[in-house]
Design a protein around this nucleic acid. Structure first.
Length: 418
RNA sequence: GUGAGCGUAGCUCAGCUGGUUAGAGCACCGGACUGUGGAUCCGGGGGUCGUGGGUUCAAGUCCCAUCGCUCACCCCA
């Protein structure tokens, strides 16, 4: 058995994943993003510092191990910290700014698996580094939205908010503590803990009691606490999104779980994929590179989960195209023709996709097997063909049939299939 | 980490209140239909009934434990 929360990918599911990533590649590279693949593990420090020691990811969800020299290494739980590490390591700050990077690959989190959540899952990441312009925030949102729309998804909703600058957030958390602490006993168990750890998370609690209390106390949203600059930044982002007619809604309660976010935060959701309805999300993280020991490098980016997008596509009834069968399926009619079938098929490769049967078949059976494999042509090798070094070709779609010397088979098939 | 539901063949599932050698469909392999059958008919391989204990003359079926899967919570993609 594959270990908990992991799975083997093949067949239709794999094709769907590949299509999702290929679409993202097209969209992101059209915008000038360069593909950059970071290793799947890093020094643990990269995530502890980059993601934030207080986050759930770092506190309890990382696969961490020691190498033989005693260094602590971690299977990456997300992509952004590693991408910024690479930006710093390769001196990309001297490249023309901003630098747009993208990456697709596996991520690892030691959570309890459920629908849309796995211990090894796949993400597409995009990061635009080196500029504070709100245009780049809007661009990231558009690129995320477009990547998902381009694979065929319809039921998308884009949620936008701002978590403000760090001092805004500090003021807001202080406000929440002040308002909620007197009512601590009315909160759910989880939210009591949130109150001391990170009060903002109470806002998107799924507990009805918490939501009722928030309504009752008329708790003000984060957006009311934005400083002047963060406010202006958000307004700019909205302006650019509107101009491009991206259908977004302001979601004051939107809280991103990672410590490094400032100002813009966004998510894209899909209703039909279970409790984990976020397909992807992102935001701005101007302070991240300093946490990693580098100079200040502002950045904005997103990640989306390939598995979740696949679930959404499935829910909308969008299936990947059937796998193409071989161009030719060679059927030996006698035992002596088996090796010949292999020989003929192999000489056609790799220009043609050629397979063959490993044991002699009756012609009818041969046709049946060729059809099951989705072959375009079936080729028979019987007594006469063997003697004459010829192959009888039958086009399965039409039933038309020709007999050709080996040397002419490749040319015939290539022109017939074009 | 918490809670609930579920574990019988590769897949989907039968198996009545415990009762002979555990079944079906699909899939796979082979044969029949004399060189053009995604067909039909016949046959075949495959299962420590998740695992370990217990109750009983007798356990796939009842009890306990354990493991696994699924969904949900926390949190997130």
């Amino acid at each position: 058995m594959a270990v908990r929360g992991t799975k083997d990918l093949f067949g239709q599911e794999l094709r769907l994943h590949q299509r999702i990533v290929a679409t993202a590649r097209k969209v992101l590279e059209a915008a000038g993003a360069m593909e950059l693949l970071t290793p799947i593990f890093e020094e643990t420090q990269v995530f502890e510092k980059g993601v934030g020691a207080s986050t759930d990811i770092v506190r309890k969800e990382m696969f961490t191990f020691q190498d033989r020299g005693g260094r602590s290494l971690t299977l990456r739980p997300e992509g952004t910290a590693a991408m910024v590490r690479a930006y710093l390591e390769h001196g990309m700050k001297v490249w023309p700014q901003p630098v747009r990077l993208w990456m697709a690959g596996p991520m690892f989190r030691a959570e309890r698996p459920q629908k849309g959540r796995y211990r090894q899952f796949h993400q597409v990441n995009y990061e635009a580094l080196g500029s504070e312009s709100p245009i780049l925030d809007a661009e990231a949102i558009v690129l995320l939205y477009e990547s998902l729309k381009e694979v065929g998804l319809k039921g998308l909703s884009v949620k936008l908010s701002s978590v403000g600058d760090p001092e805004d957030r500090a003021r807001y958390n202080a406000y929440l503590r002040e308002v909620l602490t007197p009512h601590r006993e009315a909160l759910s168990e989880d939210s009591k803990e949130r109150l001391s750890l990170n009060p903002m998370r109470i806002l998107d609690s799924k507990d009805e009691r918490d939501q009722a209390l928030l309504r009752e106390l008329r708790v003000k949203p984060m957006l009311d606490f934005l400083g002047e600059e963060a406010r202006a930044h958000l307004n700019q982002v909205e302006k650019h999104l509107s101009r491009l007619q991206v259908p977004y809604e302001l979601e004051p309660a939107l809280v991103r779980g990672l410590d490094y976010y400032v100002r813009t935060a966004f998510e894209v959701h899909h209703a039909a994929i279970g409790a984990q309805s976020a397909l992807g999300g992102g935001g701005r993280y101007d302070g991240l590179s300093e946490l990693l020991g580098g100079p200040r490098v502002p950045g904005v980016g997103f990640a989306f989960g390939v598995e979740r997008v696949a679930l959404a596509l499935e829910a909308e009834g969008i299936a990947p195209p059937e796998e193409r069968g071989p161009d030719l399926y060679v059927v030996p009619l006698l035992e002596e023709a088996v090796a010949e079938a292999f020989y003929v098929a192999e000489t056609l490769r790799p220009r043609l996709r050629a397979e063959y049967a490993l044991s002699p078949k009756k012609p009818g059976k041969g046709v049946e097997e060729a059809l099951k494999r989705g072959a375009a042509f079936v080729g028979f090798l019987g007594e006469e063909e063997l003697r004459a070094k010829e192959l009888t070709l039958k086009r399965l779609a039409t039933g038309e049939q020709v007999r050709l010397p080996y040397a002419e088979v490749a040319g015939f098939l290539l022109s017939a299939l074009s």
